[in-house]
């Protein structure tokens, strides 16, 4: 799955650690999601969407 997490985070000048703290996950998890090595669970995806005030499909798009 592709995602815009890095851009969204950079736009707010948050570090991976900052975002991890806000989402209650480790920095490694944020990095793995941003590099698209790991797809977050649905609850975490909702949490991310809520944090950035965007619909999930604006942040995550399936790979064709």
């Amino acid at each position: 799955m592709k995602n815009k997490l890095r851009e969204l985070r950079a736009a707010r000048a948050w570090s991976q650690g900052d975002l991890g703290d806000k989402l209650d996950v480790s920095r490694q998890t944020i990095n793995a999601i941003e590099t698209e090595k790991y797809d977050p669970s649905l609850p975490l995806a909702f949490k991310i969407a809520r944090l950035f005030k965007k619909p999930i499909e604006d942040i995550f798009t399936p790979c064709e």
């Binding site: 991976q16 650690g17 490694q28 990095n31």
Partner: peptide, 17 residues
């Protein structure tokens, strides 16, 4: 820290544990 490389201490970091 914003880059994708991790130090040795990060690799040993227990994360949320």
């Amino acid at each position: 820290m914003d880059n994708q490389t991790y130090s040795a201490s990060d690799m040993c970091a227990p994360g949320k544990v």
